[in-house]
């Protein structure tokens, strides 16, 4: 019997297939380099904890967009949903005098309901998810703005602020939430049969259906999970800043797509990992921090991120072509 599994061990193919590891190595190299050049500003514990803290508010959206992308869809309403979660939670505590725990639970239920609506529109009505969630995103944001008034701040329950601002061994709480969420979802997506279904759906929907996967059910559930993650992200952001205002979610879903794609998640569906996406997000965070410290003009950063994104995609295309 012929065994044609020639190991394609080229450098590019390593970057493509072991994206999380490749990015981790790259991040380490950049960090060491900058730590060497800027030992007092970049290479400090407090700077690294700031990098992680800045990343933490949007990581929930990165996870959400990753699971949606793996099954070949997109959710552009995540930013709006995140804002809605934060503002609703704040309003319930301040205007309606609800205890914090109930405010959080109700907000998350509403965010999940928003996800459910997205799921129905995409899976049952067969609306292309790009348009469907673009529309619902506007709707959700509209509601959030109505509910926000001038924004909510100084929440009555002091625990709310504490959950966002307390430091444990110099690490602020949101960073811990980020790490917990990443570990949970990295495990779920890599090791449970339920979440592995996403890959079959994303790679070949027809074949997935013939393998006995209930596609619309799985898709709706995914949008609900994504909505919940967005809500959690919003509430954590409100805790951290002790404020809930409508403009924190602007453009977050596209930044999340950027991180996920740099991290090896395919926009066409069927491949990618949570670990890769997380590394993609960390890579962007470290680089932007490093460039700021190196006193590069901040206006240059979007262009640099763009170059990295397109490079990542080109590498994937080259590797795919080689394999064919």
């Amino acid at each position: 019997m012929i065994n044609k599994a020639e190991k394609k061990s080229s450098f590019l193919s390593f970057i493509s297939t072991q994206r999380a590891l490749a990015l981790f190595i790259l991040i380490t190299i950049i960090s060491l380099l900058f730590s060497f050049v800027f030992p007092t500003t970049f290479g400090t514990f407090s700077n690294f904890s700031i990098i992680l803290l800045n990343m933490s508010s949007e990581i929930m959206i990165v996870i959400a967009i990753t699971i949606v992308l793996i099954q070949g869809e997109i959710d552009l309403s995540l930013g709006s949903n995140m804002v809605l979660g934060a503002i609703l939670c704040g309003r319930l505590m301040i205007v309606n005098d609800l205890p914090m725990i109930f405010a959080i639970i109700i907000s998350l239920i509403v965010c999940m309901a928003c996800g459910f609506i997205n799921g129905l529109i995409v899976a049952k009505l067969n609306v292309v998810s790009f348009i469907g969630t673009l529309a619902t995103g506007m709707i959700f944001l509209g509601f959030a703005v109505i509910l926000s008034g001038t924004g909510w701040t100084d929440f009555p329950d002091k625990l709310f602020k504490a959950l966002g601002q307390t430091k444990i061994m110099g690490i602020q709480m949101p960073v811990i939430y980020m790490i917990v969420a990443l570990i949970i979802f990295a495990f779920l997506v890599s090791s449970t049969r339920y979440f592995r279904q996403y890959y079959y759906i994303g790679a070949n929907q027809k074949a997935a259906k013939l393998s006995g996967i209930n596609i619309s059910k799985v898709k709706i559930t995914t949008f609900v999970i994504a909505g919940c993650l967005a809500g959690i992200g919003g509430i954590i952001t409100a805790m951290r800043f002790n404020t809930a205002i409508p403009n924190v979610g602007a453009g977050v879903e596209l930044r999340a797509v950027t991180a996920a794609v740099i991290g090896g998640v395919s926009f066409a569906g069927g491949s990618g990992t949570v670990a890769g996406a997380a590394m993609g997000a960390l890579f962007i965070a470290v680089l932007s921090n490093a460039l700021t410290i190196a006193k590069l003009p901040p206006d240059l950063q979007p262009s640099i991120t763009g170059v990295i994104l397109i490079t990542a995609i080109i590498i994937d295309i080259i590797v795919t072509k080689k394999n064919k």
Binding site: Q197, A203, A207, S211, I213, G270, S271
Partner: peptide, 19 residues
């Protein structure tokens, strides 16, 4: 038509959604 997922390994393709 092929029904395999290129990014997954042999075992996960053979036992697709039945791992």
């Amino acid at each position: 038509e092929r029904s395999l997922v290129g990014s997954l390994n042999v075992a996960e393709n053979i036992f697709a959604a039945r791992q």
